[in-house]
Design a protein around this nucleic acid. Structure first.
Lengths: 166, 166
DNA sequence: GGGATATTGTTAGGATGCGAACAACCTACA
DNA sequence: TGTAGGTTGTTCGCATCCTAACAATATCCC
């Protein structure tokens, strides 16, 4: 872990405690830095663009997915956004209450609920998403432009691999 | 966002909605994949190694930091682990209740609390951490071994850059 | 047709994490 | 010395997100 201590010092201390066992410090750094980055980026985005509109990270994702793919079934929003359907129910109600999107029962399957943006929701996204993307640009900015695609791809294969067996 | 749809199709739809504005899709993919990866990895680690010991991710981090740096001040644990001191108070009480570590008032500064591992805590970490690291290895495994250090470094600079101005 | 099984969105309950307020303690400075 | 202001850990209230249970609906298969 980075933090106030150096990686070298951390490795030395792990070795002191585990002696013979061989530890993969590079993988350890990947996992640890992955979490630090995700938390830091989430906090940053929530405090910059999202807080102005009183939106949580999840709320924004729901808006974004709906904006791009409307009309969309709620179960698809959950998959696309990566959260549970129970979480989605609450967030959807909040966003619907604010007049940014609307639920609608499916004609062909009575169990399904379709979601559409309202005009107010589209207005919001037309200013919010460019501002959000500007912050995404800022987040990725310290990485060599030629390596950013590679970074995204490495994160993708990590996700796919980990989700494979569960 | 990857999900069921292709990146190309997503880009086309964003363009449909924003026309002239130029969006940085690579940065968008970096941020989006960062969150998907962090969530997937966290779930994986919690379900494999951590669930057996009824440990949350945060609980494990606290144990790990303490194990490596004991005796350590609680404020340092919070910084090192990347969570708030309020969160730490509760987690520390849980771990102390299970007999894995112990609080101790600082002699030199009455406000500070020092934390040490108990022998039972050390026993736990001597088996838990190698198992955890094996899963970290699995997480990083789909990335070219020669590129893993680069991945960790990119995540680190992203974190540092984003935390800089807050 | 019609009952067993599966799927969907919602609800209820619990776990987790944060910011704000607070009491105890330390430090600086007049 | 003593008082104002900063720091630390804890408590409290709140938001978020998950799993499990449930009712409504659809599908399968005899």
């Amino acid at each position: 872990m980075p933090g106030p201590h150096t990686l070298v010092e951390t490795e030395r201390r792990v070795d002191e405690r585990l002696g013979q066992l061989d530890i993969d410090f590079t993988s350890m750094a990947v996992v640890s830095n992955l979490f630090r980055a995700a938390n830091a980026v989430r906090n940053h985005l929530e405090r910059t663009v999202l807080a102005e509109h009183d939106l949580s990270w999840t709320g924004f994702v729901v808006l974004w997915v709906t904006w791009i793919w409307e009309p969309i079934e709620t179960r698809q929003i959950a998959v696309e956004g990566g959260f549970s359907k129970a979480t989605l129910t609450g967030v959807l109600s909040t966003l619907e209450g604010r007049g940014w999107l609307a639920r609608e029962k499916s004609q062909s399957d009575g169990r399904l609920v379709l979601v559409r943006m309202t005009p107010a929701g589209r207005d919001l996204m037309e200013t919010l998403f460019p501002a959000f993307n500007e912050q995404e640009r800022h987040v990725a900015s310290p990485v060599d432009p030629a390596k950013r695609g590679e970074l995204a791809e490495m994160l993708r294969v990590v996700t796919v691999n980990v989700e494979k067996q569960s």
